[in-house]
């Protein structure tokens, strides 16, 4: 694959992108997607939230999962960072603590795919800011 270097290259790739529309069409209706939020305040970032976010993005891309990965602020659980909140359509959000790359993959494989809970769930009695 040729490397993208300029905005013109990006323009040329656009068509190819449009062929891959399935996930994007769904993203017009975010309520139908699994919403994954990675806490990315100072505490989260210093504990490795970026690595976790990259791992989640990579995983949902590889396995073609209908999900969006976004960032959120500090939920007050600094000691348990990196934390990841997952909200499946029609369900209450679940917050996972001490997430690393391995656990991020487990969240996708077990919770997102099979609705199976993992260790280290935090009580969701916070307000995201």
């Amino acid at each position: 694959m040729t490397k993208i270097k300029s905005l013109d290259d990006l323009r040329q790739k656009k068509q190819q992108l449009e062929q891959n529309m399935e996930i994007r069409e769904k993203s017009d209706h975010p309520e139908s997607l699994v919403q994954i939020k990675v806490a990315m305040a100072t505490c989260g970032i210093a504990s490795g939230a970026r690595t976790v976010m990259n791992a989640l993005v990579e995983k949902i891309k590889k396995e073609n999962i209908a999900a969006v990965v976004t960032q959120t602020g500090c939920m007050g659980y600094c000691y348990a960072e990196p934390t990841v909140e997952v909200k499946k359509p029609g369900q209450d959000p679940v917050v996972f603590s001490y997430v690393d790359v391995k656990k991020a993959e487990e969240i996708v494989d077990k919770y997102i795919r099979n609705n199976e809970l993992l260790d280290g769930i935090l009580p969701a009695n916070y307000q995201t800011i």
Partner: peptide, 10 residues
């Protein structure tokens, strides 16, 4: 350039 395609697209 991308028009409707969101920047959050993987």
């Amino acid at each position: 350039i991308l028009g409707d395609t969101p920047l959050s697209d993987l």
